Structures are given as C-alpha cells and as structure tokens.
Computed example of a mutant assay.
Amino acid sequence: MKKYKSAKESQVSITELMLPSHSNFGGKVHGGHILNLMDQIAFACASKHSQAYCVTASVNRVDFLQPVEVGELLTLKASINYTGNTSMVVGVRVEAENVTTGVVKHCNSSYFTMVAKGDNGKNLKVPGLIIKDKQALRRFARSIERKMAMFQRDTKFDDKNFKVEDYLGQLKKENIKLALD
C-alpha cells in the first residue's frame, strides 16, 4: 500500500435517476434516500483511498439547499479532503439535473468522517494525503478547523465544564420556559 495518495486517486461519482419510489409525501425525493446515497459514496471513496473496509464515524452538517424532484438525475461526487492516522474526511457534493432543460443545481454538500477497519475490527492506518494545489490545502485546513471546533464544542458542554449562568442571558431570547430544580 502507498504511504501517500492524491485525492484524485480515490475520487468517485455516481449518477442515479430519482424515481417515484424515492419520494416523500410532499412529492420531493426523500432526504433519507439522499443521505443513504451520500453514505454509500463516502464509503466507496474512503475504502478506495485506504484499501480497507470503512465505517462512518460522523457526518458534519447536512444542509438541504434545493429540493430534488422525481425524474431528475442525482449526481454525487466524493473526494478525500483530510487524512488522519486511521480516519479520513470525505467531502460529498450532490447535484440534481433536470433532464429536459439540462439545468444543474447544487443540492447539498457534506463531510463524512470515515474510519478504516481491519479484519479484526481494529482501526487501520490510512495513507496520507498528497496536497497538490491551494484548493486541496484549503479543504485539508478546513477539515482541521472543523475537527477542532467539534472538540471545543463537545468539551465546552461536557457536564464538568458547563456553567448554567453563562447561558441564562442568551436563553431569555429563546422560545423556552425555564423550570430548573
């Protein structure tokens, strides 16, 4: 196995026609179906990069920007944005194309943290990422920032660190009725 790989070596994309069976009660493609496809392509990309079975550790922020219509072609593109020791951040972009007009719309982008696993179920070391341009460096740096922000957010709200008085002022503006013991 290579010690380092470029993102291009493991990029994958899929295109699928959105069928009525994919729709929700509102007649749009169900977000859960899109998330399932996103997870599948993140798995494929991470597995291709690591040459190992991978599992989803977390998904960072999923914003549905545009609805996807039945009859549109949904294209998902995945690329490795960051590599840690045993984990990878896979950037996934989702676009829908109207087949009759050719109009393409960006529907979603998200970041999946995937972990490589060995046959014994233990985490496996993954190849590092070769950064070839400013865009790839920006994506790598952004993944580091997201990772640090998540850690800070998690520790800030840990039972030992959380201070009610720090938030009482903010809560006055929210749709909440406090009834603390």
Rank of each mutant, 00 (worst) to 15 (best):
K2E: 14
E9D: 15
V12Y: 00
S13D: 13
I14R: 07
I14P: 00
L17A: 10
L17G: 00
P20C: 03
F25D: 09
G27Q: 04
K28L: 09
G32F: 03
H33M: 15
I34Y: 05
L35V: 09
A42L: 05
A46W: 08
S47F: 03
S47T: 09
K48A: 13
H49D: 10
H49L: 06
A52R: 14
Y53M: 14
C54W: 05
A57N: 06
S58H: 02
S58V: 08
V59A: 01
N60Q: 14
V62K: 04
F64H: 06
F64I: 06
F64V: 07
L65V: 08
V68R: 02
E69P: 00
L73K: 10
L74P: 08
K77E: 14
K77S: 15
K77N: 13
S79P: 00
Y82M: 06
G84R: 08
V90L: 02
G91F: 06
G91C: 11
R93G: 13
V99Q: 15
V99M: 15
T101V: 12
T101H: 09
G102L: 10
G102N: 11
V104R: 15
V104I: 15
K105Y: 00
C107G: 12
S109M: 02
S110M: 03
Y111M: 02
V115S: 06
V115I: 12
K117L: 15
K117E: 03
D119Q: 07
G121D: 03
L124H: 01
K125M: 05
V126A: 01
P127T: 03
G128K: 04
G128Q: 01
I131A: 03
K134L: 12
L137E: 15
R139Y: 03
F140G: 06
F140V: 09
A141T: 13
S143E: 04
E145Q: 13
M148Q: 12
M148E: 15
F151H: 09
Q152C: 11
T155I: 12
T155D: 03
K156I: 03
K156H: 14
F157Y: 15
F157D: 06
D158E: 11
D159F: 12
N161M: 05
F162T: 04
F162K: 04
E165V: 08
E165I: 06
L168F: 08
L168H: 03
Q170M: 10
Q170L: 13
L171E: 04
K173I: 00
L178S: 02
A179F: 01
L180Q: 02
L180Y: 02
